[in-house]
């Protein structure tokens, strides 16, 4: 036994790692040692994370901290250097249908020839199946999802005619159409109007109420405490993770943002007691 450990440096590293026993085997999203690198410098380095069921987690950190990269790496959208990810206790490839991912709004060309309803129907891809086209039933489902984000009246509108906030709501409707159990959203509140922000928060809170799990890459520190019950601080490495009440502290903010966070802002953040 001892010789086997001595011969294998990986085992020694693993032995030193604290494995949280509280993580359920069926955890919606469990990430172990995820490292993603663009070129030589890692964008995300050896990150562990666990999203418990029925939680709403904000991933926060400065620009370039690897927040979006963490999500993309977890879903295998970009190649990872190392790490293991399990979604509901199994590899993501096997649990894809339980996951809805909302990319950044700015990542697509909104000049694409499609109507609002067409984009939402894309969320029904798995349900429609190979070699088939969307039917009337799918359209009805998509309309119901648009209704939930307050965009039903825009169903036949060309997507290029929408405002940024409306586009974001269409993306959320597409995720709702996927009828998933885990929702991963990349900056859903970036550049949206107040009405959209409220509509999105309401939908996300309803999801949580329906026992779904929500994870958002988030940039607005002033709303973290109001919107999310968990927070993950990220700056290439994970700085801290846990309930907002105890983890959303000045110490963690300083550790994550360093000097980039003005002290005057910190007072407005409804920090936790930790």
């Amino acid at each position: 036994m001892t010789t086997a450990i001595a011969a294998s440096p990986e085992l020694i590293v693993d032995a030193g790692r604290i494995v949280e026993p509280s993580v359920a085997a069926e955890s919606p999203l469990a990430i172990r040692g995820l490292t993603v690198s663009y070129g030589r410098k890692p964008a995300v380095f050896s990150v562990d994370a666990d999203m418990p069921a029925t939680s709403m987690t904000a991933i926060i950190g400065p620009n370039g901290a690897g927040k979006s990269t963490l999500l993309k790496g977890a879903l295998g959208i970009i190649p990872t250097v190392s790490g293991e990810v399990s979604v509901f206790g199994r590899p993501f490839a096997k649990t894809r249908r339980r996951v809805a991912y909302v990319p950044q709004r700015a990542s697509v060309d909104w000049d694409f020839p499609a109507r609002v309803i067409d984009v939402v129907i894309m969320g029904l891809y798995a349900e429609i199946g190979l070699l088939r086209f969307a039917g009337w039933g799918h359209r009805k489902k998509a309309l119901a999802c648009l209704e939930r984000v307050g965009m039903a009246d825009f169903a036949d509108r060309q997507i290029g005619q929408l405002s940024g906030g409306q586009q974001q709501r269409v993306f959320l409707a597409r995720a709702l159409a996927q009828d998933a159990d885990l929702y991963l959203l990349d900056e859903p509140f970036a550049g949206v109007d107040a009405a959209t922000e409220k509509a999105i928060v309401d939908v996300l809170k309803t999801l949580k109420h329906d026992k779904k799990t929500v994870v958002c890459v988030h940039h607005d520190l002033s709303t973290v405490a109001a919107y999310f019950d968990r927070v993950l601080f990220l700056n290439v490495r994970k700085i801290a993770e846990g309930p907002t009440d105890t983890v959303f502290t000045e110490a963690n903010l300083q550790a994550t943002y360093g000097g980039r966070l003005a002290a005057t802002h910190i007072e407005d953040l409804q920090l936790g007691v930790g």
């Binding site: 991912y101 909302v102 990542s107 891809y125 429609i128 070699l131 996927q178």
Partner: peptide
């Protein structure tokens, strides 16, 4: 015709297309 959905979705939103298994 056969790859219509896959072509359309991956052309519009490649990252999303990847996430749903295309």
């Amino acid at each position: 015709l056969v790859l219509w959905k896959e072509l359309a979705i991956s052309t519009f939103d490649g990252v999303f297309a990847h996430s749903i298994g295309i």
